[in-house]
Simulated scan of single mutants.
Amino acid sequence: MQERKSPFQQLDYTLLFFLFVLMCISLVAIYSAATSGQYGVAPSYFVQRQILWFSVGMVLMISAMVIDYDLFKHLSIPLYAVSMILLVATHLFGIEVNGAQRWLGIPGVFTFQPSEFVKIFILISLAHLLFTITRAPRPKTFKSDVIVVAKILGVGLPPFAFILIQPDLGTALVIMAMIAIMILMAGVTFRMIGLLVTLAVSAVAGLVWLHNNAFELFTQVIRPHQLSRIYAWLDPTANIGGEGYQLYHALQGIGAGQLYGSGFTQGVKSQSGVIPELHTDFIFTVIAEEFGFIGATVLMVIYFLLLYRMVLIAFTCNNSFGTYLTAGVVGLLVFQIFQNVGMTIGVVPITGLALPFISYGGSALVTNMLAIGIVLNVNIRTKHYMFGEEE
């Protein structure tokens, strides 16, 4: 017997509330970052533009909720084709900024980062592929696992490679994180997981060997600026004048925040203008310095609650395609949060990933809200039964 509910009854208002709180934190942090004076504009300039991007993201989020997510199955191949066209176009005609060719558009008028939208398109394609693979029972054999992993890698690796050569290591790693999530969701054996982990560790060991024994070949894989960031991560104090400058001052600011923080717009490092990209990649520094450990913890708790709501949606969904979509979005956001906060506190190298829903920016913010819209879509269309589940 099915329990009938209207779409508005099944809309997850708790999830929307946490999203709204993150929006408020974003505006406060961006305003404070902009008061440092390093951008040459009034603090309200970035706040107004962020509100505009939130509005655009809200429209796309609602649009993603309106369309029955089952239709995404039929759109997965066209969306994948669009993804590859955008990435090829970026490679051939993209706008280069600071040595990276990641943008399309008209300089000074309108630009966007195709790889941000590609993340969502690839997510839908991988979820549909996994739905197709797991629709029928398959034997739990190593050969079967190899076929499943090969199919997932066949879909995920081409966009990963194109994004990596832009170069955009951060977004490329997001794609790889989604691939890993889908492989785990496919139910492969521990033997296959062990093999993949071994291959990943071997690849890292191979890069270390190349660095020590064939440096010229190593630089063909890891770009010089990426290597400089790794050096800065390993020893920020030895690279203060170079790539370690940003991380060193960010760590100084976070440490100065202590328990309660220095107060809104009162951060010594945040307001000194010495930290580049403070309103985007290093926005967490503003929060940690001006609101202290307590403020940073509150932000992490809100993230946890937001992700927890999405995990619940994935578990309660009785359509495997919806479960894969939601799990993919969770993996997408978890990796971005971990990477951004991790690079700010020196746990992982700097890659330039935005902090979801907090950092100033257009493409990243809009695509993350689009991802939330997909999750809400899944929840709205999940059928609840008093006895049993959907066949």
Score class of each variant (00 low, 15 high):
R4D: 05
K5I: 04
L15S: 05
F18L: 09
Q38W: 02
V41W: 00
S44Y: 11
F46W: 08
F46C: 08
L52M: 13
W53S: 07
V56I: 15
V66P: 01
H74F: 11
S76N: 08
S83I: 00
L87T: 01
V97Q: 10
F121N: 11
L123K: 01
S125C: 09
S125A: 15
I133N: 09
P139L: 13
V146M: 14
A150G: 11
A161R: 06
Q166S: 13
Q166L: 02
D168K: 09
G170Q: 03
A180H: 00
T189R: 15
F190R: 13
F190N: 14
V204Y: 12
W209T: 08
N212L: 12
A214G: 04
A238P: 03
G253L: 09
S270T: 13
D281H: 06
T285M: 14
T297L: 14
L305T: 12
Y308A: 12
R309W: 09
L312R: 12
T316W: 05
C317T: 14
N318D: 14
N318K: 13
N319P: 04
S320H: 14
L325N: 11
V329M: 05
V329K: 13
V329R: 10
L332Y: 15
Q339F: 01
M343T: 07
M343A: 08
T344E: 00
V348A: 04
I350D: 01
S359C: 03
M369W: 10
V378D: 06
N379C: 10
T382E: 02
E390Y: 12
